[in-house]
Nucleic acid binder design. Sequence first.
DNA 1: GTCAGTGCAAAGCTTTTGCAGCGCG
DNA 2: CGCGCTGCAAAAGCTTTGCACTGAC
Lengths: 159, 159
Amino acid sequence: MSVRARERSAEQHETAALAAWAEHASTVLARAGRRGGRARHAVIGLLAGQECCLTATEIFVALRSEGRPVGLASVYRALERLSELRLVQRLEFGDAARYEPLLPSGEHHHHVLCGACGKVEPFADRHLETALGRLRRARGYDVAAHDVLLRGSCAECRV
Amino acid sequence: MSVRARERSAEQHETAALAAWAEHASTVLARAGRRGGRARHAVIGLLAGQECCLTATEIFVALRSEGRPVGLASVYRALERLSELRLVQRLEFGDAARYEPLLPSGEHHHHVLCGACGKVEPFADRHLETALGRLRRARGYDVAAHDVLLRGSCAECRV
DNA sequence: GTCAGTGCAAAGCTTTTGCAGCGCG
DNA sequence: CGCGCTGCAAAAGCTTTGCACTGAC
């Protein structure tokens, strides 16, 4: 299998996982006694089509431009509910918080941020996960999650 | 050497490094054509006595209660200047940004955050640094720095 | 019918900026 | 004695909250 084919396969796997996530999210919400709602449904739909994290404003603008008239406050409220139920991961870097689907499989990635253009991209690394896995009891804490952010300059900005 | 003695030794090493950092900071600032100023001097003095990161407001309150009448805006401006010259590290988690001295030796630590009480503590791990060191070219980026945050519950909150 | 969800507007926070005066070099 | 530094107050984001209304179950 070529590198390109392997990447394509990984992308398809990702897409399928996200579709499953949207369904999973609806189920968990219903089980938590939450009613369906236009805005929250729209947010879930948008996140399920997204490779990486988005800010609340980006979500708001994207939905508006798709012709879904949601309020910014509703986007924040939807993201808050989804975070509470561990359906989305809230990331804090830069000026605004970013949100992305949290897959029930535990499968996850971390992020690289370009200091010049502000672009954020995902990456995954097995060795890093192994090292993080050994830190479950660091400092006497019960470690439930970890965030890693690499800062640098992307290929385009470096030219 | 006992574990306790080794910890004490590490603390002394840390304290010495921070005293050296304060001096280093003054030198770098002077070399950059910056004049001395009451507020910035106070911020440097406070950070040099600090084990881990503080928010701008925490620094502001601490200095005021020490009888050093600084303005909050000056604290932010001092931290901005120090960040620009890579003398302090700005960390973004929780609601407010946190700042801590950036040692010229490159020696550094990461953080564990207790989701229940909001406490932040430093930790260092050799295996983690090794794994991060291998990611200097991740995704085609020139990686200049990395932040790691572990989230969990501390020993006291877990009881 | 009840009560969660929604949109808008207003409020709350952290952080930045404008401005006049101070004081370091 | 110029210009960087400072404090205060005002402004500028991002995020949350109050409120009346809508609509899902």
